[in-house]
């Protein structure tokens, strides 16, 4: 996973609430067995017209937002399906940071696992950042993870919260499994305890 430290990039505004993961990547594109290659289908129904050509009115089809690496939306971003294909599609498109007043839990989690930084900021600040985003390439936002601030084009700094553990994992580009396996001894002890307390727990086998 790529490290996330400081990102200075074009931001795109999608001023909608409840952008669900079906909208980010429709189910018919989930037949892949890979993590990559989904970027061309990101926001498919908004991005392409019925006959398959690009919808010129959609922000990610316009310059300079084709190069957007930051996305700003309204509440409850990523609701619906748990599909990690949603952050994979965003990442493959080039998005590394999503900003919204609130996120659906599973999507929020899935972003971190892929080196995408989700930032919760109040609605009025999201409105201000959407105003910045509308200025396009003249108005790059800077997301400084070590200092936990979003820096607006006029230099104003907006602080944000993040779990220390998740921050560490993003900064170092670490994956969770290696971290958890450092606690394998405790997992084994737990298993032995449960085997004593709940011996009736069935094992599954179709043999």
């Amino acid at each position: 996973m790529d490290k996330f430290t400081v990102l200075s990039a074009v931001a795109a505004a999608l001023p909608e609430a409840n952008i669900d993961t079906d909208k980010i990547i429709p189910a018919r594109f989930l037949k892949t067995t890979q993590r990559t290659g989904l970027g061309k289908h990101a926001f498919d129904s908004m991005r392409y017209l019925a006959e398959g050509s690009e919808n010129p009115d959609f922000v990610l089809n316009q310059q300079p937002w084709r190069q957007a690496e930051i996305l700003v939306t309204y509440d409850n971003l990523g609701c619906g399906s748990s599909r990690e294909h949603a952050p994979w599609a965003l990442l493959d498109f080039g998005i590394r940071c999503v900003i919204a007043p609130s996120f659906a839990d599973i999507f929020f989690n899935n972003c971190f696992k892929n080196g995408i930084l989700p930032i919760r900021l109040p609605r009025d600040i999201c409105d201000a950042l959407m105003g910045d985003a509308a200025m396009g390439s003249n108005a790059r936002l800077t997301v400084d993870l070590p200092r936990q601030v979003v820096i607006r084009p006029d230099g104003q700094e907006v602080p944000f919260e993040i779990d220390p553990f998740r921050k560490h994992m993003l900064l170092e580009g670490l994956d969770d499994i290696g971290q958890t396996l450092q606690h394998e001894g405790e997992i084994t002890v737990f298993e032995q305890t449960v085997a004593g307390e709940r011996p009736w727990m069935p094992k599954i086998s179709f043999e």
Binding site: S82, E84, I106, N110, K113, D176, I177, L181
Partner: peptide, 11 residues
Amino acid sequence: GTSEVEHVMAT
């Protein structure tokens, strides 16, 4: 998500 699926498989 799928990253967590892998995490549960391994741990």
